[in-house]
Amino acid sequence: MTTVTIRLAAPADIPFIMQTERGEGFGEFVGRWELAQHEAEFAKAGNAYLIGEKDGSPNGFAILRDLDDPFGNVLLKRIAVREPGAGFGKAFLWLVMANAFGREKTHRLWLDVFVHNDRARHVYRSLGFREDGVLREAYAWPDGRRASQMLMSILRPEWR
């Protein structure tokens, strides 16, 4: 049986994170940053980088933002796993949610996901996230194309 665990990332994990977000086929689904931006985000007090491990080896990452938000709104900025569709991602996401709601001040965990990312939207819904609305053509790809994003969230009472 596969064991899925979660831990806080260390600066030494940034190359793994960058490699994961650049995985084959991820370009249309997962954002990516350059090293300088990851280092800047990693250093912010209100952010947490989390590493999901499968049987003790890194297999995914998540970035939580706004952990210091006075209204308790925490953003799941990014989550990606090395092997989508293998079942690890859902278990990892559950642990990310537990980490966010394990913080006393968190009331709402929210994210945005590309509307064309049906697999991710299905996983989010299966764990209790609700679709809040569409940000029409809110994302601009480097080549000028536009993509719409779905806002999704789960509240502490729904998490319980």
Rank of each mutant, 00 (worst) to 15 (best):
G133K: 04
Y124N: 10
Q149I: 01
K77Y: 13
G87H: 09
P15E: 08
R108E: 09
E137G: 05
V134P: 09
D68T: 11
M152V: 12
N47Q: 03
T5V: 03
N73H: 15
Q149P: 05
L95R: 12
V113R: 04
R22V: 09
R146I: 01
E34W: 05
G89D: 03
L8H: 13
A40L: 07
S57R: 08
R32F: 00
P157M: 00
K90T: 14
Y139M: 02
W141F: 14
G89H: 01
F101W: 10
E28W: 10
D118S: 09
R32N: 13
P142H: 06
A36Y: 02
T20V: 08
L127Y: 06
F101Q: 09
I17V: 15
E24Y: 10
P58R: 00
N117M: 05
R146Q: 07
E41H: 13
G27C: 05
R32S: 13
V81D: 13
A140D: 00
A48Q: 04
L151T: 04
D13P: 11
G31L: 13
E83I: 10
Y139K: 12
D13E: 09
T20E: 06
M97T: 11
R125D: 09
N99E: 15
A98M: 10
V134W: 01
A12E: 14
R108L: 12
S57F: 03
E24A: 14
A9R: 11
Y124C: 05
Q37M: 12
N59K: 10
S57D: 08
K77M: 08
M152S: 12
R121Y: 01
M152I: 11
N73Y: 14
D143A: 02
D55I: 01
E83Y: 08
Q37D: 12
S148Q: 07
A12L: 06
W94S: 14
G31I: 00
E21Y: 01
L93R: 06
I6P: 07
T2M: 13
M97E: 12
V4R: 04
Q149E: 14
A86S: 15
F101H: 07
N47R: 03
T20G: 04
L75C: 14
I17Q: 07
G102V: 02
V74S: 12
D112K: 04
L151Y: 07
G133H: 02
G85C: 08
A147G: 09
A138F: 06
P70Y: 03
I14V: 13
